[in-house]
Simulated assay, not measured.
Amino acid sequence: MDRFVECANIDHFLNILTSQDISDRNRETISKLMIAEEDKLGRNLEYLEFAEKRASKCRDRLNYLRRLRDAFADGTEDRLRAEKVLANFQVTHDLVEEFCCRLRVMVSSSPL
């Protein structure tokens, strides 16, 4: 049951981090909470798979945001907003990818 709660919390934190209107302070706090939940998942391959799926979704979202930004003309208000959203989400994407890397190392170094 604890694993389910940890995974649900991570999904919830990712949803918050992908919102467009989050302050830098709140982003930092939510990121720390997400990392704490991620660390609880431990060395289990099942949770590595969970993290990999979330990372894949983040990569897809990042690519979508890049295409969306590129659809706007340079210098327009829409382009500037899209660039801000993209930059904010890039931070979230990097956190998820970093966690996957840490989890891969933990899984590969754990005894069978």
Rank of each mutant, 00 (worst) to 15 (best):
residue 56 S to E: 15
residue 39 D to C: 06
residue 52 E to T: 10
residue 90 Q to F: 09
residue 2 D to P: 08
residue 108 S to F: 10
residue 98 E to W: 03
residue 1 M to Q: 11
residue 49 E to L: 09
residue 101 C to T: 11
residue 32 K to A: 12
residue 35 I to Y: 00
residue 1 M to E: 11
residue 44 N to K: 07
residue 2 D to V: 08
residue 98 E to C: 02
residue 79 R to E: 06
residue 68 L to K: 14
residue 84 K to M: 05
residue 20 Q to G: 05
residue 112 L to S: 15
residue 60 D to E: 13
residue 56 S to D: 15
residue 95 L to E: 00
residue 59 R to A: 12
residue 104 R to N: 11
residue 1 M to W: 13
residue 44 N to F: 08
residue 87 A to E: 14
residue 69 R to P: 00
residue 8 A to F: 05
residue 79 R to P: 02
residue 1 M to N: 10
residue 13 F to V: 07
residue 14 L to S: 01
residue 62 L to F: 14
residue 63 N to R: 12
residue 47 Y to R: 05
residue 94 D to N: 12
residue 57 K to V: 07
residue 79 R to N: 09
residue 91 V to T: 07
residue 96 V to H: 00
residue 29 T to F: 10
residue 13 F to I: 03
residue 58 C to L: 08
residue 102 R to C: 01
residue 42 G to I: 04
residue 94 D to I: 04
residue 25 R to I: 15
residue 23 S to G: 09
residue 96 V to E: 00
residue 15 N to A: 08
residue 27 R to T: 09
residue 24 D to N: 13
residue 53 K to V: 08
residue 101 C to N: 14
residue 72 F to Y: 13
residue 62 L to R: 07
residue 75 G to I: 02
residue 101 C to W: 10
residue 42 G to R: 04
residue 93 H to E: 10
residue 4 F to A: 11
residue 52 E to H: 04
residue 93 H to W: 08
residue 16 I to H: 11
residue 64 Y to N: 08
residue 92 T to A: 03
residue 76 T to W: 02
residue 40 K to P: 04
residue 31 S to I: 02
residue 69 R to I: 00
residue 89 F to Y: 12
residue 62 L to E: 07
residue 106 M to E: 12
residue 68 L to V: 08
residue 58 C to P: 05
residue 105 V to C: 05
residue 7 C to L: 04
residue 5 V to E: 12
residue 54 R to V: 02
residue 40 K to E: 11
residue 67 R to S: 14
residue 44 N to E: 06
residue 89 F to R: 00
residue 74 D to N: 12
residue 39 D to Y: 03
residue 23 S to I: 03
residue 48 L to K: 05
residue 17 L to N: 00
residue 80 L to W: 04
residue 11 D to E: 12
residue 6 E to R: 07
residue 77 E to K: 06
residue 104 R to K: 15
residue 95 L to D: 05
residue 36 A to M: 05
residue 19 S to G: 08
residue 85 V to C: 09
residue 22 I to E: 07
residue 67 R to F: 10
residue 13 F to C: 12
residue 59 R to G: 07
residue 106 M to F: 13
residue 72 F to M: 03
residue 60 D to A: 11
residue 95 L to W: 04
residue 15 N to H: 09
residue 10 I to A: 00
residue 7 C to F: 05
residue 83 E to C: 01
residue 100 C to S: 01
residue 15 N to G: 14
residue 102 R to T: 03
residue 57 K to Q: 15
residue 100 C to F: 01
residue 26 N to H: 14
residue 82 A to S: 06
residue 26 N to L: 15
residue 103 L to V: 06
residue 69 R to G: 00
residue 107 V to S: 01
residue 50 F to Y: 06
residue 12 H to E: 15
residue 88 N to P: 02
residue 50 F to K: 00
residue 78 D to L: 07
residue 105 V to Q: 13
residue 51 A to E: 02
residue 112 L to K: 13
residue 68 L to E: 14
